[in-house]
Design a binder for these strands. Structure first.
Length: 779
DNA sequence: GAGTTTGAAACT
DNA sequence: CAGTTTCAAACTC
């Protein structure tokens, strides 16, 4: 470069200060310092440039790239993503990214000029061509991690710097984590932002990347020297978190910048937090240390990979150091959370409560990872999954939320959800993880942390509770993916390939989520409406609606008769609703109301009456049997279909007095009289549409059901069926038993707060947790 | 464990 | 908006 020469020349020039040449040199002089620094080492240069450390940022993009390909999911046996994903596009990303990173680095170093410094420093200056080979080669970047990289970069750019100062505060990380979660799932964030920024991105990217890289490496080193380990660890963790989180936050648009600083942390860290929270905060520190050692290889690797990926080739020699740092970061992240946990608590009462609840359980690093967040309960799966979810759901209901509830809140993913209840929607943690968690049973939970690890596995063993996705082509970024649909990151139990649903790819996940939500606001709403939702009596419905949304959507079963898990309604342990478009519905949990059916029934009644009685009995028996079989039911009294519950709520008498008959009767076979009565009742209760008068009495939920749109702005998917509420009947299958169960659950509904205790109690109890299925309510 | 069925999600 | 395709879970063997 010219600078060296200049350096040499300058002295001479200085001597001849007067000479015009000297003046010229002077002008140039400013560059020299940089140059010198640059020469010493690229790292130093970066430091000198000193963009605030934004290691996280740097990491995130890289992470994405490397991570997928390289990252082994879990030491436990998860296959490394690379292995799995080999076919995935991810692989391609790696090289490109790395190259990109390298490029960036190179550019940064090479350029190391004013412009760069300026751009990096925070202003999003259009990168000069120089820095930006990148800009010139947008393709590469994109190729690496198409969406992620670009968006993140944007976010990173200016904000990161600002955040740096803040990073120092570990506490903030905690807040960030919370926000992150919100961010992660928040639908509010709009892709548009990302898109817009993206446009800027290419150029920016180049700069940012360089910045990131430089900062990362520099900071990491710097931290080591300057900060004590603990602090350092936190700091680093924060950075990491920030990288992703920040971007995410940006996307989401929530969170203050300060908060945003740590967003990434929230995403990834969330898991940690939960774990941590589970334990005492005080303990957390120790735990973290332990964690460092114990931390699951996956996480470590992930982090490492990120670091590696980020690190320029030149730096690779130092990579080891970075790795070490990274590890710490990971550990510390967790620790940071733990520390921050307190603050979090401040931030969210819920979080605090949850912690306590969790405290009993020891968290181990692995457990953390495994714990994925199920933002949405995997509600659907009746089996273990349901149970897991449910717990969360239960928690959601009561404001009083037990500790569990708190967790749930913490977990709450989407803002939408939060909105829904007024309270955050809680998303069950991973089926396994969460289920296992603190909530499960304190006693068991208390079991050593190792158990936690087991939990996942155990759950899986237990049943499919922990079972996760096995996506191959969707990269776990579509609703096809249970994990993604549930708002949870894929974890060990998953057997997915090319998974992008990981904290590392937080950005991508969020952006994808946004897109999907944009298309269908209710896409991530719980499939099944929870009791709590039913609770609407309180009138909260409007907010909750989202949850019910899916259910509202209803199934479209044709061959399964709504008697198999193919049917979402059945899977959720809920009766079909008017929104359902199913054919030959035999949902034992309740039939879709369908005015049409009613009409049909009306017609058929005469004929069927006789048969109906028999059939009904059969159906009931059948339903009962099925119900018994149904995992959810078994575990816990199922929450009646929201409709039903609502009806019950409104019409306690009805429930108590007459057990609703099995829905079947209604469906076609219907028993005439009873079916009619039920139908009428249902209508009254459920569909305001049918009976306007009923509206008053009708629980909000019902209303919601009728108008899903209320809660969610989204278009009403429901639209399809107008048919009145049939569900009320639905509950019937169990009828008596069902009602009883419902009644139990119901209590909780009525008073979100007061009942919460009930719910919490349930949740708190192991069984409760397991039973969580109640959660059905998840919806 | 592999293959088929099923229905939701995504796409056109 | 409807029809078709794609996808992964559920199911069967």
């Amino acid at each position: 470069m010219d600078t060296p020469d200049r350096a040499a020349t300058q002295p001479a020039a200085s001597r001849a200060e007067d000479s015009p040449v000297f003046s010229f040199l002077n002008n140039l002089s400013p560059i020299e310092p940089l140059k010198s620094a640059y020469n010493t080492s690229s790292l130093q240069v970066y430091q000198s440039i000193n963009i605030t450390t934004i290691s996280s940022i740097f990491t995130s993009p890289h992470d994405n790239v490397h991570k997928e390909p390289r990252l082994p999911k879990s030491p436990l046996g998860e296959i490394s993503e690379n292995d799995v994903c080999t076919d995935g596009p991810d692989e391609n990303y790696k090289p490109s990214k790395s190259s990109n990173a390298v490029r960036l680095f190179a550019c940064a170093s090479a350029v190391a000029q004013e412009t760069r410094a300026v751009t990096c420093s925070g202003v999003a200056e259009p990168p000069a061509p120089g820095p930006c080979d990148l800009s010139q080669r947008p393709g590469q970047f994109d190729g690496g991690s198409p969406d992620h990289n670009t968006t993140p970069c944007h976010g990173v750019r200016s904000d990161l710097k600002q955040d740096k100062s803040r990073k120092f505060e570990a506490v903030q990380t905690v807040k960030n984590t919370l926000e992150k979660r919100k961010c992660l799932f928040s639908t509010e964030i709009q892709l548009v932002d990302a898109g817009q920024r993206v446009s800027d991105g290419d150029e920016v990217l180049g700069c940012e990347w360089s910045d990131l890289i430089s900062t990362t490496s520099g900071e990491l080193l710097a931290f080591d020297s300057t900060m004590d380990e603990h602090h350092r660890g936190v700091h680093l963790a924060a950075k990491n978190a920030e990288s992703c989180g920040y971007l995410l936050s940006r996307l989401t648009g929530d969170g203050n910048i300060s908060d945003r600083a740590h967003p990434s942390a929230s995403g990834q860290q969330v898991y940690y937090q939960e774990l941590v929270m589970g334990e005492d905060q005080t303990e957390s520190a120790q735990i973290f240390q332990d964690d460092q050692q114990t931390i699951s290889p996956e996480e470590i690797q992930d982090n490492i990979y990120e670091a590696n990926g980020c690190v320029p080739l030149d730096y690779k020699a130092e990579s080891q150091q970075h790795r070490g740092i990274r590890r710490r970061c990971l550990v510390f992240e967790a620790a940071g959370f733990s520390n921050s946990a307190v603050q979090k608590g401040a931030v969210e009462d819920l979080s605090a409560s949850t912690r306590k609840g969790k405290t009993p359980v020891q968290i181990q690093p692995r457990g953390l990872r495994g714990i994925g967040l199920h933002l949405n309960a995997l509600a659907l799966t009746p089996k273990g999954k349901m149970a897991c979810q449910d717990p969360m759901a239960s928690a959601l209901l009561p404001s009083s939320a037990s500790e569990k509830d708190v967790h749930g809140k913490l977990l709450s993913a989407g803002e939408n959800f939060t909105n829904s209840g007024g309270e955050l929607l809680e998303f069950p943690m991973d089926d396994c993880s969460t289920g296992g968690f603190p909530v499960n049973d304190p006693a068991s939970s208390q079991s050593v942390s190792p158990q936690k690890k087991r939990r996942k596995t155990d759950n899986g063993d237990d049943g499919e509770a922990c079972k996760r996705c096995s996506c191959k082509k969707s990269k776990c970024l579509k609703l096809y993916c249970e994990c993604f649909a549930a708002g949870v990151y894929c974890s060990e139990p998953c057997s997915c390939q090319g998974c992008m649903n990981k904290p590392i790819h937080e950005e991508t996940v969020l952006s994808t989520r946004k897109q999907i939500e944009f298309r269908n606001p209710l896409a991530f709403a719980p499939k099944v409406i929870r009791m709590s939702d039913a609770g609407p009596e309180t009138g909260e419905d409007p907010n909750n609606t989202p949850a019910s949304a899916r259910h509202k959507r209803g199934c479209n079963c044709k061959k399964s008769s709504c008697l198999k898990k193919y049917c979402e309604c059945y899977q959720g342990g809920v009766g079909c609703s008017s929104n359902c478009r199913c054919e030959s519905c035999k949902n034992t949990f309740g039939r879709r109301d369908a005015e049409t059916e009613l009409t049909e029934e009306m017609k058929q009644e005469g004929e069927l009456t006789e048969n109906c009685g028999k059939e009904k009995e059969n159906d009931q028996q059948k339903a009962n049997v099925q119900i018994e079989d149904h995992p959810l039911l078994e575990l816990v009294p199922i929450t009646p279909p929201f409709d039903l519950s609502s009806c019950l709520l409104k019409l306690p008498n009805f429930s108590s007095a007459k057990p609703p008959r099995p829905s079947k009767a209604r469906s076609g076979n219907g028993r005439p009289s009873s079916s009619k009565a039920n139908a009428t009742v249902v209508q009254s209760c459920k569909s305001s549409k049918v009976a306007g008068g009923t509206d008053e009495a009708m629980p909000d939920i019902l209303k919601d059901a009728s108008s899903p749109s209320n809660c969610v702005k989204t278009t009403s998917p429901n639209g399809k069926r107008v048919s009145p509420p049939h569900n009320a009947l639905n509950a019937s299958p169990n009828r008596k038993g069902g009602r009883k169960l419902i009644l139990k659950s119901i209590p909780s509904f009525p008073s979100l707060t007061g009942d919460a205790n009930n719910g919490s109690a349930m949740s708190s109890t192991d069984g409760a947790f397991g039973t969580a299925p109640l959660a059905l309510g998840p919806s």
